[in-house]
């Protein structure tokens, strides 16, 4: 029901996600390469395709009711701006933005630490590796909503001096960071392992320490390789901020629900959905561009 139905459970396997996509994104570039006939053909098929959907949607018996319930201009506008009795979905969405901005920064750091700890060699680090493995196993396995409940209701229940009196949003961020760091740590790890061992050998043979080799040679290359899957995870995170509403925070999805319950109209959900889409599209295009750039660079390297 909330916008966060695509939980992290459906994430790509990080190893799989690191490998380049089979077909490059050619959005907006196809027409330049296509001939006139091809342009005609693609226009015709586009019109046919969307025309068919429009016809089916308008011919459905409940079409009129659905239009009123979901797409009434009046309700779209009113839920966006808010009324005296119901919160503005747009304003509530700012909370989502706040939650994922803070979470993303914390996740980037915590996940990197976990990935590095998991890669530390030697018997001395064995207990640390065990903790890192246990962490990723646990938080990738437990559904986000359960982690939210445990953190959001459990920690206040403990009656600790400071930690039990934080805001719902804070507990929500903690839960998101815990779960997503487990995923992102695996993405980092896949990146670290994709850097050839010869790079490490070259760095060490110059007299760099293990840490220096990691810091200056391995990690910069690893991070570059995992930026696309990393951003992919962050798109998932942006949507999952809606789940924080289960702790009582009024973010966009919850504001939409309040409006829907008060006005018996679901246009508010459409507004919330559009806001989420609007904010993920730039990130998705940015990811595409990074993938394309990476590919170009590698090809340039192959020619040289």
């Amino acid at each position: 029901m909330t916008a966060g139905d695509t939980g992290p459970d459906r994430k790509l396997d990080p190893i799989e996600a690191v490998s380049p996509p089979s077909s490059p994104p050619t959005l907006g570039r196809g027409s330049r390469v296509l001939g006139n006939r091809a342009v005609l053909g693609s226009s015709a098929s586009t019109i046919l395709f969307f025309g068919f959907i429009a016809v089916v949607a308008t011919m459905a018996p409940g079409s009129e009711i659905v239009r009123q319930r979901f797409f009434s201009w009046f309700h779209l506008k009113q839920s966006f701006l808010g009324t005296g009795g119901t919160p503005s979905v747009a304003e509530a969405f700012l909370l989502n933005v706040e939650i994922f901005t803070i979470s993303e920064m914390l996740i980037l750091i915590l996940a990197l630490v976990i990935a590095i700890v998991r890669g530390m060699p030697g018997p001395a680090f064995f207990p640390f590796r065990v903790v890192a493995v246990a962490y990723t196993d646990l938080f990738r396995g437990v559904p986000l909503i359960l982690v939210l409940y445990v953190i959001g209701f459990g920690i206040p229940g403990l009656g600790l001096r400071f930690f039990s009196y934080l805001s719902d949003v804070t507990y929500g961020i903690v839960a998101l960071v815990l779960v997503y760091s487990a995923y992102v740590a695996e993405v980092y790890r896949a990146g670290i392992e994709s850097v050839p061992e010869s790079q490490n050998a070259a760095a060490r043979s110059l007299g760099l320490t293990r840490w220096q080799a990691l810091r200056f040679v391995i990690l910069p290359q690893a991070v570059r390789r995992v930026i696309p899957p990393l951003l992919n995870d962050f798109i998932g995170l942006q949507k999952d901020t809606a789940l924080v509403s289960v702790l009582g925070s009024i973010e966009a999805a919850r504001a939409a629900q309040i409006y829907g319950a008060a006005q018996f109209n679901y246009a508010s959900y459409v507004v919330a959905a559009l806001l989420f889409v609007l904010i993920t599209i730039p990130l998705a295009r940015f990811t595409d561009r990074l993938i394309a750039r990476d590919k170009r660079r590698r090809q340039a390297g192959a020619i040289a």
Binding site: S198, A201, A203, G207, T209, V217, P220
Partner: peptide
Amino acid sequence: VNRIRQRIGIVFQSFNLFPH
């Protein structure tokens, strides 16, 4: 080993320059 390696240079068959 780090101190030792600083005094012994090695060049590999496959260059192994840092690409970034």
